[in-house]
């Protein structure tokens, strides 16, 4: 909560900065698009993804529940709060930080018309993820991963294919033991990844890991809602800027 307060005071500061930059934009009309790009990229939270959720929302969606402590991956230690009745509990303040960072990146990629793909293994939540992807106008892969979709794309699809610009993993494990091969392949192809990492996952290959529960439907619905909202914010902004003729590729 303390951190949140500091952030709101920061937002006030930023609005002052924004108005200052606004004045300067009026002075330099011809440089407007360039300035805008700088503003979008330099802004700490241009799409205001920080107000999409609160720590309370995370708690209500049971994001803090990890797996049993016997299955803990040591690389997840920095993100956990402790263990209760044999189960890992995540530090939701940290989760919120990382999730905001991930949502910000998502919104930026959507703003730049990047291709975003959702991953999820396991039948329980697959439909939800596919539905979310469809609603966002993005892509989903919730099935068995045939090796080489990223690393051998030209052969696999029979022609030169544009690969995704961002992979969002709603869980990074195929089953309880094996990591999803796409995590490795995305790292090989330098594709940025966002991954919900549970207490038994390895966050090292994920560009933007988000520690949290990766299998309960409640938390999965929350993640889907949040990422969908972030993508919509990015796309709306893009549309707006294209209409005003100030969007610059």
């Amino acid at each position: 909560m303390l951190k949140r307060i500091s952030k709101t005071s920061f937002i006030n500061l930023r609005s002052i900065c924004l108005s200052a930059s606004h004045r300067q934009q009026q002075l330099e009309q011809e440089n407007a698009p360039k300035k805008l790009r700088e503003e979008v990229l330099l802004h700490p939270d241009y799409f205001k993804v920080h107000n999409l959720f609160t720590v309370k929302d995370l708690f209500d969606a049971r994001v803090h529940f990890g797996h049993r402590d016997g299955s803990l991956d040591e690389r997840m230690l920095p993100y956990i709060y402790g263990s209760r009745l044999g189960h890992i509990i995540f530090d939701l303040d940290k989760t919120a930080e990382y999730l905001r960072k991930a949502l910000n990146v998502t919104a930026h990629i959507a703003y730049r018309d990047g291709v975003i793909i959702f991953f999820q293994r396991g039948a329980q939540n697959a439909y939800l993820v596919e539905k979310t992807a469809k609603e966002c106008g993005e892509f989903a892969h919730t099935r068995f991963w045939r090796g080489g979709i990223f690393t051998n794309a030209t052969k696999q699809f029979g022609c030169v294919t544009r690969l995704p610009d961002l992979c969002i993993f709603f869980n990074t494990l195929n089953n309880v033991l094996i990591q999803h091969t796409a995590v490795r392949d995305a790292a090989k192809m330098l594709i940025a990844t966002i991954g919900i990492v549970d207490s038994n996952c390895n966050p090292n290959l994920i560009t933007y890991p988000v520690p949290g529960n990766d299998d309960s439907p409640a938390s999965m619905e929350l993640y889907c809602k949040l990422f969908k909202a972030a993508i919509f914010r990015g796309k709306e902004k893009r549309k707006e800027h294209i209409e005003q003729n100030i969007y610059l590729v």
Partner: peptide, 14 residues
């Protein structure tokens, strides 16, 4: 896109 996005400012380092 990625390279540019990498420049996105982290909201956590105000």
């Amino acid at each position: 896109i990625l390279r540019q996005i990498m420049r996105v400012v982290h909201p956590l380092r105000p």
